[in-house]
Write a protein that binds this DNA or RNA. Structure first.
Lengths: 117, 117
DNA sequence: TCCGCATACATTGCCGAGCGATATATTGCC
DNA sequence: GGCAATATATCGCTCGGCAATGTATGCGGA
């Protein structure tokens, strides 16, 4: 018995952050609001979750950051690195595989009384 | 800003166990192997995870159990209750909504170099 | 016969994700 | 002047999942 990467049984927030940065360079607070909107007001990543994730992503070399000093607001801009894009591709594929897997496991529920919501 | 049930950001193992029991009455070890097969050798729920889940599901009233005393092997059979079926329906819908949500968030990745795996 | 493996259930303790709470500082509006 | 929104950061808690461990039985092969 061998199994899938157990990491993605747990959260997919890192994936979402990486994905959001794929849309272009962003700072923390902007990542929060972008994610909130792209998920149609569903995913509300908390500050206490987001910043530690960003620090980790940087430590792993998947993003690089730069402080903005010119304008008034103090902002730290994050950008995907090459290895970050690779990581994103990997994670996205793992996610798709996991979804497909769950689809199979839940397959038999098709016959369940199909009450939506 | 309001958000979805944060529980399913975490694991979906309870959902999988409930779903497996929808296929009929089963004992712990059989749930493990059924899940393993229905997921095509991907989901390997560990004993240290499964049994605490089953105890919790019973405590919540979503399953009921009965010890098998006739045959040699000592087995505890679990069965979905009515409220358990309702719970399963709810959880399955939450899962589908979450998947749809992620699909939207990852939507922009469609243009990413489409290397499979 | 008996050793080892699969079966079968259970509990304890650890790890780590996500979050609430809190802290700090600035901008903009009423 | 005061309050909300913006912006980043850290600490400590909770809880899911799992490795490790314990116990016990049935079965096949050497």
């Amino acid at each position: 018995m061998e199994a899938i990467n157990p990491e993605l049984l747990r959260g997919s927030l890192e994936l979402m952050v990486l994905s959001t940065l794929f849309g272009g360079k962003k700072y923390g607070y902007l990542i929060q609001s972008t994610l909130w909107e792209s998920s149609r007001e569903v995913i509300e990543i908390k500050a206490g979750t987001l910043y530690p994730i960003l620090h980790k992503l940087e430590k792993e070399g998947w993003v690089k950051s730069q402080w903005e000093n010119d304008t008034g607001r103090r902002r730290k801009w994050y950008e995907l690195t090459t290895s970050g894009k690779k990581q994103l591709r990997t994670r996205a594929n793992e996610w798709r595989q996991y979804v497909e897997c769950l689809r199979r496991v839940l397959g038999s529920l098709g016959e369940m009384s199909p009450q939506l919501a």
